[in-house]
């Protein structure tokens, strides 16, 4: 079981390389690598460094963010259904991003885009935690999440429909489903610092979440500062998920599926699950993004379509299992 982290890291590295090497232009292996590392071949350098590299980096980072925040939320709420997509964090972040773009704020101040998404994500995490209560009852959590998702989805659609830009309304599906097509290095520079900061904050929560598995009282008696843990969770999730959604749209189910698959492999300890879920999320999103390019190279198939095809049946399976446990 000690091998799980190195193995996941290897898988992520392989998928990252595959993401760089697969694309509609159909470049050879040798020439792609020469273009990427040595800068040979002008047009190919542009393809590798300006088109494929940002896409691969954002796929890796967004996946890691979603896997990690899913694991952290599930650990804090002790509820297997908590996930940024399901409880409305992603769609609220999308609303923030859309508002920043459509008010023109993001055009004058680029940082406004990730910051607005961060604010949207932060507000929704806070709201969901309040609604679900300290014990994080499954029903309250999911219902609050559904209401929040529906509300922010509706407002996002409204804002895009009212945009003077005729293309904006057609992009509702992008914000709901997510896509990494035609992202550039400027998106990477804008989003990655927030994602790294958020992930660093979430990764510090391991010990506190371990203690929390024994219950709140036990955790507090072990010296865990619960209000602080909660604050770090909110800020870390908001920064990382907000930045990911601002550039890639809301991709669902990664934070649900990955922690569940990995939990048995790490002995169900949150402190070990957190890094594993980050790596697993990165692998899942990179794989999904590669699949979109292999299935429909010219079509900009949305990432969320693929993750939902895997994740939704999984979600139903989880509910089924919980029902049997509760019965």
């Amino acid at each position: 079981m000690k091998l799980i982290l190195p193995l996941l890291a290897l898988l992520v590295a392989l998928l990252f390389a595959a993401s760089l090497l697969i694309g509609p232009a159909g470049l050879g292996l040798g020439e792609s690598l020469r273009a990427l590392f040595r800068g040979e071949g002008e047009a190919m350098v542009l393809v590798m460094r300006e088109i494929r590299l940002p896409r691969a980096i954002l796929g890796l980072m967004a996946g890691a963010v979603l896997g990690l925040s899913g694991a952290a939320m599930q650990g804090y709420l002790r509820n297997p259904l908590a996930e940024p997509g399901l409880i409305g964090v992603s769609s609220s972040a999308a609303l923030g991003a859309v508002l920043a773009l459509q008010t023109g704020l993001a055009a004058t101040l680029p940082l406004a885009l990730p910051l607005a998404a961060l604010a949207g994500a932060g507000a929704s995490v806070l709201l969901v935690l309040v609604m679900a209560g300290p014990r994080g009852g499954a029903l309250a959590l999911i219902l609050a999440g559904i209401a929040l998702s529906a509300l922010s989805g509706a407002v996002t659609s409204l804002v895009l429909n009212l945009s003077p830009n005729p293309f904006a309304a057609m992009e509702i599906v992008h914000w709901m489903m997510g896509s990494l097509a035609d992202r550039s290095m400027s998106h990477v520079w804008l989003a990655v610092p927030f994602m790294v900061a958020g992930m660093a904050a979430l990764l510090t929560l391991g010990r506190g979440l371990d203690a929390l598995t024994l219950g709140e009282d036990a955790a507090q008696s072990m010296g865990v500062n619960l209000p602080r843990l909660r604050l770090v969770l909110i800020l870390g999730t908001a920064a990382s998920v907000g930045a990911a959604v601002a550039v890639a749209g809301a991709v669902g189910f990664v934070g649900l599926v990955v922690p569940h698959l990995l939990r048995p492999l790490v002995g169900a300890r949150p402190s070990r699950l957190l890094p594993a879920a980050a790596l697993g999320g990165a692998a899942m999103l990179l794989a999904a993004d590669i699949a979109t390019r292999l299935i429909a190279p010219d079509r900009d198939l949305k990432l969320g379509v693929l993750t939902a095809l895997v994740g939704a049946p999984f979600f139903l399976h989880l509910i089924w299992r919980m029902r049997r446990v509760e019965a």
Binding site: A106, F167, E171
Partner: peptide
């Protein structure tokens, strides 16, 4: 590009 932002035009 049209006024207002869109990802399509990015």
């Amino acid at each position: 590009p049209y006024p207002g932002a869109s990802r399509a035009e990015e």
